[in-house]
Amino acid sequence: MSAITIRNLNVWFGAGAERSDAVKDVSFDVAEGESFGLVGESGSGKSTILRAIEGIAPNWSGHVSIAGEVLGKRRSRQFYRNVQMVFQDPYASLHPRQTVDRVLSEVMGLHGFTDIDSRIGRLLDDVGLGSGFRFRYPHQLSGGQRQRVAIARALAPEPRILLLDEPTSALDVSVQAEILNLLADLRAEHNLTYVMVSHDLGVVGHLCERIAVMKSAEIVEVLGVGEMRKLEANDPYTRHLLESSIHSVR
């Protein structure tokens, strides 16, 4: 059974003459344990797909099912446990006046965990922070450490699917490498399914097995990472994107 099935997904903002379509007729599947990438320019609708899956896009139509559950207006408690999101900017996504401990325990409290104390220690170890960071505030952490906290928060309810919205684009390359390694390790350890949005083909190519290329609200092509590395793209836009990303020195 695939972890995520999406058929004919449409997302739009506004109504009537003001209506603008952010996602048009998008379909794809993500298998259990797979890592799927969405790339495209800003405004192409890649983040909106994640937001529609998560349930924070206001208007959408089409068929979305997550681990067998067909999504409607109301979603089960299980859904909110299974699917978690990591946002782009760790400077904006953590509450500035709550400690790491508070952020993590709130999530676990909401999902009815009782052994919160021991879990927080394990979570922080999992993301490579250690319990020394437990009572810190976000301003006492660096960008990379904040993103680790954001990942710990997403992992707290023991999800099966992580939606990653540009998880490293606000970070330095050296810190990006640490976070990408961490994400790869966590996926292997917890058998997670990833859907990752990024504008950086290098990053997507590193972490994902299959990549969908989006342009003006539509998926123009889905290709495997092997084909992408060999620059075997059929669509002219994909080729253009690939060519502009290849500039490495070594």
């Binding site: 990006q176 490498a177 640490e178 390694n181 190519g205 590193h206 992408m228």
Partner: peptide, 19 residues
């Protein structure tokens, strides 16, 4: 370290080097 920590489309690596 900076050069090696960039994920590269053409030359994939199992793990990225951490500075």
């Amino acid at each position: 370290g900076l050069l090696n920590s960039v994920p590269d489309l053409e030359h994939p690596r199992e793990r990225l080097e951490v500075l």
